[in-house]
Amino acid sequence: MLTATCHCGAIKVEVPRKPRRLTSCNCSICRRYGTLWAYYKASEVRVVASGKTQSYAWGDKSLRFVRCATCGCISHWEAIDRTAVNRTGVNARNFDPAAISTARVRRFDGASTWKFLD
């Protein structure tokens, strides 16, 4: 198991294994968040919040981006309709950097073509 923790420690996201691949997306929201996404089945991810969370949804509002209300770290995104999408993006920036040092980072062109750039 691997745990991603926000800066103040209030939000922890537990996943069953280290990610082998990470996605860096250049869309309007991901580039501002500076996130690196590790994808898991939603049923594999456990979010433990000891503090307040906030979330943000935009566009077609199929996803919401969840963050710690105190330190602002983006913890993960989740489908708003969880019955339709069993997938969650966990922000790998919150893992121990050593745990993701060997993961391959792929650049996704979410801003334009919706394809990988590499």
């Binding site: 500076g34 996130t35 330190c71 602002g72 770290c73 983006i74 950097p97």
Partner: peptide
Amino acid sequence: CSFCVKHGGV
């Protein structure tokens, strides 16, 4: 720093 790594701050 610990904050900027988590935020991808540049």
